[in-house]
Write a protein that binds this DNA or RNA. Sequence first.
DNA 1: ATGATTTTTTGATACAGATCAAGAACTGGT
DNA 2: ACCAGTTCTTGATCTGTATCAAAAAATCAT
Lengths: 247, 247
Amino acid sequence: MNLVSEEINIKCGNCDIRHRAVCSQCDTSELNTLNTIKYYKTIKAGQTIAAVEEPISFVASIVTGIAALNQTMEDGRTQMVGMLLPSDFVGRPGRNSVAYDIVATTDVYMCCFYKKPFEELLARTPHLVNRLLEMTLDDLDAAREWMLVLGRKTAREKIASLFAIFAHRSAVLRRKGAQDTIEFDLHLSREQMSDYLGLTIETVSRQISALKKDGIILLPNKRHVIVPNLSVLLTEAGDDADGGVLV
Amino acid sequence: MNLVSEEINIKCGNCDIRHRAVCSQCDTSELNTLNTIKYYKTIKAGQTIAAVEEPISFVASIVTGIAALNQTMEDGRTQMVGMLLPSDFVGRPGRNSVAYDIVATTDVYMCCFYKKPFEELLARTPHLVNRLLEMTLDDLDAAREWMLVLGRKTAREKIASLFAIFAHRSAVLRRKGAQDTIEFDLHLSREQMSDYLGLTIETVSRQISALKKDGIILLPNKRHVIVPNLSVLLTEAGDDADGGVLV
DNA sequence: ATGATTTTTTGATACAGATCAAGAACTGGT
DNA sequence: ACCAGTTCTTGATCTGTATCAAAAAATCAT
């Protein structure tokens, strides 16, 4: 008995994302409870994780991969309204459906919790609600930051802003500063980028080519970007050289 | 002693917005605590309530009036990223500054709570955190809904979407349905609308004129709008005729 | 490898919304 | 009621991005 819970605990304790995930503050007993209501699930790139109107029976934490929150109009125009990265939370406690379609952009591996018992745990675990509030406030900041991009930036600035997000994430992982060379893989297709940026794929393609021609980025292949100087990229994004970076 | 707390309680209990405000679930003792740490404040239209980078010593609930969350680029381009209406919450518990400038659009009367003791109350009152999470999730939905407007809608659809929000709010207040005539006062200037919609004031003006010419709205004066048929307006907004209305 | 399919790039053109400019209509103070 | 200042509307023109079209590059199945 003791041994079983120990094992389970070790498994969850080893999870790469736990320090940033919803369970980051949980103690051993809470982790044990989570272990009894969790399961892992892999979704192939392109598959829908959850759709508007459909009830959803779980909440989850992304372990690896990227998913997109998409909003679509009747005539097919679509806008990506959020990007879910490892450690991001999926689902809205207390609500029975998602507000937007959630689609796997790459293969996604996630840690799911059955919704009902998760909410019961939530009801008796205030610090978990606190953690969710924290994460939701961060999501809100990111969404609002992105509203400036969508409403007021030019196509070139939009592309630079998107690349700045990826560069920033990569820089945090590698502990680099604004003056260092940063590189990252582009996990989004041109179409996905256009949906995120409110542009067409042709404009995305043209602006990427332009940034390349101007030496702001190098593009060894279509899906890998090298940023020789991050602060130059940030200037192109219309941000001042160190602030305002999202995600 | 008893009498004093009774009086205070009655005052707060009578507050028009309490059923939707952060304190909506609070019991008498919690309301009493809130009473000891609250004060009221009026801000004139155009004044800044809180600015980025400046530390803020309170959180608050809007009682009457409208405030805007504004994000501004160095060159002056600005995007409104949120609108605060009566009962909306101001400030982010656990964080020391606001992420965006908060500016009074009309005269604003708000109920402020000193930040420190409010956060202490929060720490021992889980249902208040729950309520904040609820409100933050609503804000996030509204922000993401607006991302579709900014990223994918035409100028005409943007104006219609904005008017749909006002119409919806007015309809809820008056309990009207989609087929009824709805009217509302426009509390935003053309410039504020353009900042919210990611347009110029000229385009805002032209599109309002066009909606008027096409009979979608009547405009007895510059600041009052009559919508003869809400579902027609919703169609113009690119929404299907009853879903997707914000705020 | 080879051809079929999909994704990306590039070019030519069209158009929605921005910009520039001038009136017209409001607003507030005296 | 009137004038100065502001906000709003309308017109003319310009421009950035969309659209339409086709070639080039990458990916996939056999």
